[in-house]
Amino acid sequence: MYNRAFLFNGIGSKPEKLLAQLTPEMTDKYESYRAEAFTRLGLDMDMEKNTGYSAQAAEWMVPFLCDRVVYEYFIDKGIIPDIGAGYSSGIVSASACFGSIKHTDAHDIVMTHLSMFRGLQEKGIKLNMGIVIGFPYDDLKELLSGKFNSDELIIGSSNSSFHNMISGKAEAVEKAIELCISEGAIKAFPMNTGTAFHHPLMEQYSQEYIGLCRNLDYKEPKYPLISVFDQTVLQTVDEVKKENLHNVCTPMRWDLALKKLEELGVKQFFDVSANGAIKKFSRVGRKCKVYTLEDVINGDYTL
């Protein structure tokens, strides 16, 4: 039923790494979308002139704008998805590219992340996230379960058989990283996000985000999505809305979402992030392949 899936990363990569991968034509399009978005949001087009929260907002906007440009490039090339999936804020990006929400809605959602961030800082709440490379989900869960309770720390996402994201109170994240390194992680490091996305404790700090997501005017997506929370296929307005509402405070299973896509018949995965960020931490079966923008530009994928 499904053959081709588009994978959206959203926030995560450094702007310079994303922009370096765009062709001149794509860069022109990106700059046009950026001018539109930055003007509407009151951000300075000169990235250096944005300071404090504005600087953060400007940086967070870049992946969304790049996702849109790459998505449209794939479509123009005749690469049409049968289904999609969004990793974390990639859910918002996917919802916008698949026409379920407007791109301006996606930008407004990014801005609510900032108010969430501001609220946490003002209250002096110290949260963090971290990456642990080298443990399967079950092994990491077992390692952490005896040392931390779920109020302090959870696995925010299992990305592949060796790549996990942890999320929770900053002190717990720090201790968990030390523990993982001593127990043989290939690498474990804090992300220094100041937030604990995908931990239920974020719900209390996300009321503006939740309010906005609840009140957006959703449309049925042009292509279905797979839920990274419960691996169901999302096709209706309510289902896409629910995925967006759950996003900030619910742990993800990216690994299971990819597995489910394979079970549904997907063989070709397209990483919509400009720099192939998703391909790096995702793993698919031997009969499948993850294509990046670079692959498509270089002609390594033909219809």
Partner: peptide, 10 residues
Amino acid sequence: KLQSIGKYML
């Protein structure tokens, strides 16, 4: 197992 390699790398 990756953990074996991680411990070696320590």
